[in-house]
């Protein structure tokens, strides 16, 4: 019985951890390329969820079918945000950058509440209440779909950065934008691309979450703190670091919460985080 429960919590932790990883990948990408902390990242996730919700409730299209559309919209939103806001503050003091993205967070939440009301929404599609029972272990079908989706999306981003010319250009800009510029890589465009991909990652996470997590204007707040922890734990700017760190945080949260008491689950995660930072300040896979 106990072994079964441990296995259950472990696997449930992995499933939620994969979502944390995907949210964090977008965040770490933006930070890695241009050293800007995006406080509005949770709101990209929220927009991804609402995009799924409206396409589902207005046109009865499943979130997975409309995923490409949502990704495109979020990619475009990332570009627009870059052009309108971020471009102007690239060389501003860090405090201005923080307040610019923090201000966007409040603005986006406000807009969502204004246009879509503060109501909690959910998507009830064909698989949203499905579940898989296997050897006494219970998993929600949407959680499994989300986990697989998160692996695919994170893998795609990793492949893009490590195996394509454009990805190499992005990586070059992240390492030294002036040198990259001298080699003929337009850093402005790379920055815009990082914002587009970053927002799109959060959008995919939003789509995957939308069939099992309630959708409301403040939903980003539930995920953003964890996403920051994952980014720092994995190493700023490291996609594979964010992936493993996401899983670790998910597992530690669920298993630790089960063993030591759910009231301490965030405390456990943050203690682990502090511990790792003491030993490896650059994070698990960050550059020293």
């Amino acid at each position: 019985m106990t072994g079964e429960i441990l296995l259950q919590t472990l696997l449930s932790g992995v499933l939620i951890g994969l979502i944390y990883a995907l949210v964090a990948v977008g965040l770490t990408m933006i930070f890695g390329v241009m050293d800007i902390v995006n406080f509005a990242h949770g709101e990209f996730l929220m927009f991804g969820m609402y995009s799924s919700f409206w396409l589902f409730s207005l046109f009865a299209l499943d979130p997975l079918i409309t995923l490409p559309l949502t990704v495109l919209m979020l990619f475009a939103l990332g570009l627009v945000v870059y052009q309108l806001v971020i471009k102007r503050i690239i060389n501003a003091p860090p405090l201005s950058q923080i307040f610019a993205t923090f201000g966007m967070m409040i603005l986006f939440r406000g807009l969502a509440q204004f246009f879509w009301k503060p109501d909690f929404r959910t998507i009830e599609n064909s698989y949203s209440s499905g579940k898989v029972v296997f050897a006494g272990l219970h998993f929600g079908l949407p959680q499994i779909i989300a986990g697989v989706g998160a692996i695919l999306a994170t893998g795609a981003v990793w492949w893009f950065i490590n195996r394509t010319r454009l990805g190499a250009a992005l990586e070059a800009t992240a390492q030294d934008k002036d040198a990259a510029q001298l080699m003929g890589i337009p850093s402005q465009r790379m920055f815009a691309l990082a914002w587009g991909i970053g927002a799109a990652c959060a959008g995919v996470a939003g789509v995957l979450l939308s069939s099992f997590f309630p959708i409301f204007p403040e939903v980003g707040a539930n995920f953003i703190l964890i996403a920051f922890v994952v980014v720092a734990l994995g190493g700023f700017g490291s996609v594979s670091g964010a992936f493993w760190a996401g899983i670790i945080v998910g597992v530690v949260e669920v298993v630790g919460g089960f063993l030591l008491g759910p009231e301490y689950k965030m405390a456990i995660v943050l203690s682990l985080f502090l511990l790792v930072l003491l030993v490896r300040p650059q994070g698990l896979m960050g550059r020293a």
Binding site: I5, S12, N222, G257, F258, P262, K265
Partner: peptide
């Protein structure tokens, strides 16, 4: 007795304790 943090992203550990 389970006291969980408000605004949790998942309640799996809580429910596992309840089941147990």
């Amino acid at each position: 007795k389970i006291i969980y943090p408000a605004k949790s992203t998942q309640l799996t550990s809580e429910v596992q304790r309840l089941k147990a």
